[in-house]
Design a protein around this nucleic acid. Structure first.
Length: 500
RNA sequence: GGUUCCGUGGCCGAGUGGCUAGGCUGAGCUCUGCAAAAGCUCCUACAGCGGUUCGAAUCCGCUCGGAACCUCCA
């Protein structure tokens, strides 16, 4: 039986609030859309957590054997300073402040974003469309919504008519709101005379004469609203209804609510079967966000230059840290927690290195120890299939790491293990650590000259130890340690080393 | 004010009715020339109060505390 059938994935669907068994629209295929960054600024660690969450989702589906089409957009126009549909476009504002072309801003921060993704070993999506590349489609869907009477033009801008939509549908289905409440509780904002109601949102905005990001449209020069880009890009590449839509919890309302309304209004179909929302990264219990000024930039973290940090942490240790909690819980970011994660990560990676050097061999057919190994293998799948529970999966991987260390120290004999059991155990452990969780050794040193030099020093150290010249052997070990190379003595006189 | 969520051992963090996750830290021991790594042992928790139940961290109610969304934010 294939893993894909053996381990049905359950997902907590934000739309229903329940854990549901995932049933793809097309068997064996997963279509997934995730809201990407607005590229007007550096991505911070909170952003990274969200993209990591969906990296895990796509990796696990692929690992199970699904073919995944993963679309994650780049927002390079239309994201306004506030949702009153007033204020400036974020990209345009940054361009004005830095006296650059908007596309220069977009390119700079898009590349920065990609670099951060690469550092954290977050795989690129299958398609990464940009909002400015889909202006035509955004105009088309706006026209369609106007034709259906679900939108209205006002002074060169077009707004979605939420009240009209709500007559046949439920605006608020995702976030658990109703429009009366929203009308009663929302804040009063100035200059909203273009909109009929304050809950209406822009599909198209008229560009003022000095606005630099502008495209011609049936309603005059302007630019698209923020929500419409995601509707256009998701449905264009994944179909009118697709499997999974993901994003940060803070996008649930209004962004995702508006997406549902636009798409449903335009096609008459619900666009998404499963909504997934990843929770926030917090600092001292408060959401990490640009506007609160408590965000950490990846480079501050790596270099340890942030004032809340004692030292720098590698991207893999941080990745491990984030995977220790479930994506649906908030995760608090602190120096102590990172330190603990770094140590745990090293322990896991150490076991990975040991396991890679153990070759499967035919052993006892059945044994108690074999069934334990089989159980651990199964648990990996069971926990990941349970709503991508990376925290539980890591717990199992640590149990497996203990067994690997037992093999190394001889507490467990390979001969007592069924050969197939061990082979499966080995490929599962490696697969889950490297492919599913995307964890790898922090710094891969590929410099052959360096490696050769270390080997030579280790040879000399072996010699000095057999000569009982411990002063010299200790010097070699201590000085290498200072350079970030740790030498470990094995029982049989064999020495191993690792980069810290 | 409205909607939703959370409160777990020294710290982080899983866990939705019985089977006392895991990581880090601390103490002791084993191994080691000394280390490191690893192994073993110890510290056993569910904010408070009440209820349902044979049985609750887990369900229900109340109280206290915290957070997110309702403005841009992943």
């Amino acid at each position: 039986m294939k893993q894909i059938d053996k381990h049905p994935v359950s997902i907590t669907n934000s739309l229903t609030g329940k854990k549901e068994i995932f049933k793809p629209i097309t068997p064996g295929f997963v279509s997934m859309y995730v809201c990407g960054p607005t590229v007007y600024n550096d991505v911070h660690l909170g952003n990274v957590r969200t993209f990591l969450t969906f990296d895990i989702v796509s990796r696990y589906f692929r690992f199970l054997g699904y073919k995944v089409r993963y679309v994650r957009n780049i927002t390079d126009v239309g994201h306004l300073e506030n949702d009153a549909d007033e204020g400036e476009d974020k990209i345009a504002k940054k361009a004005r402040l830095e006296q650059l072309e908007p596309m220069e801003i977009v390119k700079y921060y898009t590349e920065g974003f990609h670099e951060v993704m690469r550092q954290f070993n977050i795989l690129p999506p299958s398609i990464e469309p940009s909002a400015t590349g889909h202006i035509v489609e955004q105009i088309e869907i706006t026209k369609k919504l106007l034709e259906k009477g679900l939108a209205y033009e006002s002074n060169g801008s077009v707004y979605f008519n939420v009240r009209k939509y709500n007559e046949e549908n439920h605006y608020g289905i995702l976030s658990g709101r109703n429009i009366e409440e929203l009308m009663a509780s929302g804040r009063e904002l100035d200059n909203q005379d273009e909109k009929r109601e304050k809950i209406d949102f822009a599909l198209w905005k008229k560009a003022s004469p000095y606005h630099i990001m502008r495209w011609p449209s049936p309603w005059g020069d302007g630019f698209p609203g923020w929500h419409i880009e995601c509707t256009v890009m998701s449905t264009k590449y994944l179909g009118e209804t697709f499997d999974i839509h993901g994003g940060g919890m803070d996008l649930k309302f209004p962004h995702h609510e508006c997406e549902i309304a636009q798409a449903t209004g335009a096609t008459g179909k619900a666009p998404v079967n499963y909504w997934l929302h990843s929770n926030m990264l917090t600092v001292n219990g408060q959401k990490m966000s640009k506007s609160l000024g408590n965000s950490f930039l990846p480079r501050e973290l790596f270099a340890g230059t942030h004032k809340l940090l004692d030292k720098g942490y590698g991207p893999m240790a941080v990745r491990f840290f984030m995977l220790q909690s479930h994506y649906s819980s908030t995760l608090d970011f602190s120096n102590e927690a990172l330190q603990a994660a770094e140590k745990g990560f090293k322990k896991l990676i150490n076991a990975l290195g040991l396991l890679k050097r153990v070759e499967p061999a035919p052993g006892a057919k059945t044994s108690e120890i074999s069934s334990e190994f089989n159980r651990l293998t199964e648990e990996c799948y069971r926990n990941m299939s349970d709503d991508f529970n990376t925290a539980k999966t890591l717990a199992v991987l640590f149990e497996m790491a203990s067994r690997i260390n037992d093999l190394k120290s001889g507490n467990i004999k390979l001969a007592d293990l069924d050969g197939d059991t061990f082979a499966t155990f080995k490929s599962t452990f490696i697969g889950f650590v490297e492919n599913v969780l995307g964890l790898q050794e922090e710094s891969e040193q590929n410099d052959e000259t360096l490696k050769g030099t270390i080997e030579l020093l280790i040879e000399l150290r072996k010699k000095s130890r057999t000569d009982k010249n411990f002063a010299l052997s200790d010097k070699i070990r201590d000085d290498l340690k200072k350079l970030g190379i740790q030498v470990k003595d094995g029982k049989d006189g064999e020495m191993t080393y690792s980069f810290e």
